[in-house]
């Protein structure tokens, strides 16, 4: 599997008030062609900023260091026509489809605009292709839907339209930022199945951002866990539960209530998740970690390969295989 996207030591600072504030501090990640990578973390961990960096959609005045390569080309320095050409090779699906669609334009206008203006496809032909695509995303009566407006569609249907729109330009990479978080759980299952199927059929690579470890496990090949602007663990998606490599991952799994059993007490993680700008000099998770030692406070761990993945924990080797058992007993 060759690398389609390679993030190397990506650091991003955003302007907040008068000063610069880090939101990513050294994110390193690869996404292979046709590979689905999950990016899991709590709020402020930097997962959305990672996707926005790849899409070159960072807010005005953002400072980017490190490198983002797409198909061998450095993305951070692209300008003008090159940037537009690059953006046609990626597509994004967001959490709230309503915030990303013009409410006063019909679904038909929304889906065909790009084809008609940028590629000069005649309206009839563009609409035919849009109807075809709506059928692919599980919306059968496409001709009628094209005449409808966003407010006439349910959240689930609108998210399907967004997926159709994302596929229209035949991208190579899909950035899906919590695409089902705002949907009902039954609709989520449905939309995720669709996304998974289409992605596999088309050999599309995907960066799937979610706060739900189980969901990432179900549709991704590999999962990376983010904390305070860094990736703290990365390995095969289905191994995160049984063999977590970082105490944070193990703690996250343990903290979640279980649908199959009532716990006397949940294994809550003390404190609150930190953002990159709040991270202490040592390990960012140290003050919430049940395994932390003195050196964890002072020494910032690097993301080191371990087993079939990697972990940003000084004690990773030593704790291997015990984490998921121990955390829930703490």
């Amino acid at each position: 599997m060759s690398g389609l996207v390679e993030l190397d030591g990506l650091e991003v600072d955003l302007r907040v008030g008068g000063s610069m504030r880090p939101v990513l501090s050294g994110t390193t990640l690869q996404i292979g062609r046709g590979e689905a990578v999950g990016l899991v973390g709590e709020s402020g961990s930097g997962k959305s900023m990672t996707a926005r960096s790849i899409a070159r959609l960072l807010p005005e005045g953002a400072e980017v260091r490190g490198s983002i390569r797409f198909d061998g080309t450095e993305v951070t320095s692209l300008r003008g026509a090159d940037l537009r050409a690059y953006r046609r090779r990626i597509a994004m699906v967001f959490q709230d489809p309503r915030a990303h669609v013009n409410p006063v334009r019909s679904i038909g206008d929304f889906l065909t605009e790009e084809l008609r203006t940028n590629e000069g496809v005649p309206r009839a032909e563009a609409e035919r292709r849009a109807i075809e695509l709506l059928d692919v995303v599980g919306i059968p009566d496409g001709a009628r839907r094209l005449r409808q407006y966003p407010h006439e569609l349910s959240g689930g249907l609108l998210q399907r339209v967004m997926i159709a729109s994302a596929l229209l330009s035949e991208p190579e990479l899909l950035l899906a930022d919590e695409p089902t978080t705002a949907l009902d759980v039954t609709t989520q299952s449905d939309v995720m199945a669709l996304l998974d199927e289409l992605r596999r059929e088309r050999g599309l690579a995907m960066l799937f951002i979610t706060h739900d470890l189980e969901l990432a496990g179900a549709v991704c090949d590999r999962t990376a866990v983010m904390y305070a602007g860094q990736i703290v663990e990365e390995q095969a998606a289905d191994a995160l539960y049984t063999d977590p490599l970082h105490p944070y991952t193990a703690a996250l799994v343990a903290a979640r209530p279980d649908i199959d059993a009532t716990a006397a007490r949940l294994a809550a993680i003390p404190g609150r998740p930190l953002s990159a700008f709040e991270a202490p000099p040592g390990c960012a998770f140290a003050d919430r970690c049940p395994f932390s030692e003195d050196r964890c406070e002072s020494e910032r761990p690097a993301l080191m390969p371990i087993a079939a993945g990697s972990s940003r924990c000084l004690r990773a080797e030593e704790l291997r295989g015990r984490l998921h058992l121990t955390v829930s007993d703490v």
Binding site: G17, S43, D96, E178, A182, H211
Partner: peptide, 18 residues
């Protein structure tokens, strides 16, 4: 009537200085 989280929750306090 939706019961879903409106957005990803923002746990950190991030305010511009006055």
């Amino acid at each position: 009537m939706s019961a879903m989280p409106a957005t990803t929750p923002i746990e950190t306090v991030d305010r511009e200085p006055s």
